[in-house]
Write a protein that binds this DNA or RNA. Structure first.
Lengths: 244, 244
DNA sequence: CGACCTGTTGAACCAACTCAATTTAGGTGG
DNA sequence: CCACCTAAATTGAGTTGGTTCAACAGGTCG
């Protein structure tokens, strides 16, 4: 908990993906934040069933949110990107319904679950933002359901590429026509409901088609328009959202 | 808008599925509610892309929340049951990302989008509940993703049966070992990401196996334990949630 | 160096899909 | 009250997208 980022200097908050704070909100958040946590690659940040006393906002690093079934099958519900809020379920409903793992080392802003209520009592604008964050999450999960329910393997992969690429670009991680994508093919397979083998073949097919290259933890999209069309993603402008 | 239900007499709120109101909350909601709407079978309640000025809580009737793709494919994201809140996305994010349709005639409590902010300013407990509702929804969408991503057709159908049966039972719609299920097989197919033909075969298989009978708009589960096991649904107690 | 993790490729198989036709159940008009 | 019409449910048959099984290559690390 040594050296922590002062919210005033938060590099994320300044990105245009996120809504700005008012000075009052900034001041409040500086005290609402209880500390900063750094976890290594592979760490479990929140566990299914756990009543975590701490909630987080991702400052840096990437992770997965997943559910394990009894028989060993795993579904990756979503990824955790910088700016994402982790633990709403623990904070509001009591216990987590999925597990959050760090895929890379991650830095997290920590908040106390017990003080969430304080937010609703004293900071209506921040409480509103928390609900907004939940609504945005709900929207993305709905999109994922559409993808798993209606799209074939190639469309799914294109969809995942474009979604990930957009999001990572929006938080400033794009460099020379690419973004870091440190997940294993296995993770994408579990996120898209496909077998590992088939995931590998689709990745290869998109590469051979000249649409996208994903190798050595780096994703390059060579034809964003074609991929977006394939994925059925409209060219909507990137909307702003709140950040905790 | 003629005769509307006074929140004090709301039949839903008294069900043990939902958390009780305090007297103050009750009083507030009586004025927060702007009216009641009845829509016929087939009506569109909220449309994808719409910035609806009205938000709803389902008082009675069943509906679907779905997304249409350009090429005509449709994914049913979720169903709308009595007690569900409709329009959070319009209320918080601006516009709806999916469409809500009435499958049966529905009665809806109406709220004004413009007064949502009032909730956050003056009724922190109710604002908290709204976030809770969003978190619960998020949880269910996550479960759906798990089902679409990992389970085969039979497991999916069993999962849908048990989920629907539990929810409708919890709002008092069960009669003699069954619940009303007025959806078409087509709706279930679009919800589970399966073809209509295959959905039909799975329905028939579950019937022949003596596990569940769904016909004439009525669903009977003959072996809840076996279906739950097949669906991978733990026998967790039905948890309480807030209602708007 | 050996063990392990991740990615890659071939081959056989099957769950679910598409196409197509038929039955059933309501609903309407003469 | 019956003939007709349409929406929904069913069933058969052939096809296929994606799976499973299995083997192997390249890197990394103790």
């Amino acid at each position: 908990m040594s050296i922590t980022t002062d919210c005033a200097d938060c590099p994320l908050r300044k990105m245009k993906l996120f809504l700005p704070f008012t000075p009052e909100e900034l001041e409040f958040m500086r005290h609402f934040k209880t500390g900063e946590v750094t976890v290594p690659r592979g760490a479990t940040i929140l566990s299914q069933g756990e009543r975590s006393a701490t909630l987080y906002t991702v400052l840096s690093g990437l992770g997965t949110r997943s559910v394990m079934l009894e028989d060993g099958r795993r579904q990756v519900i979503n990824f955790a990107f910088p700016g994402d809020f982790l633990g709403l379920q623990a904070g509001i409903m009591g216990e987590m319904r999925h597990t959050v793992n760090a895929i890379t080392p991650m830095t997290l802003c920590a908040f106390s679950r017990d003080r969430v209520w304080e937010l609703f009592q004293n900071q209506p604008a921040r409480a509103y933002d928390l609900t907004w964050i939940a609504a945005v999450e709900e929207h993305f999960l709905g999109e994922t359901i559409v993808t798993l329910g209606q799209r074939d393997a190639t469309e799914r992969m294109a969809w995942a590429y474009v979604r990930i690429w957009r999001r990572l670009s929006a938080v400033g991680l794009a460099k020379n026509d690419g973004v870091p994508l440190p997940f294993r093919q296995h993770d994408l397979a579990d996120a898209l409901g496909m077998s590992l083998v088939h995931t590998n073949r689709v990745v290869a097919a998109l590469r051979r088609a000249g649409l996208a290259t994903w190798s050595n933890g780096w994703l390059q999209l060579h034809n964003l328009a074609a991929l977006s069309a394939l994925a059925g993603i409209p060219m909507e402008k990137e909307e702003q959202r709140p950040i905790m």
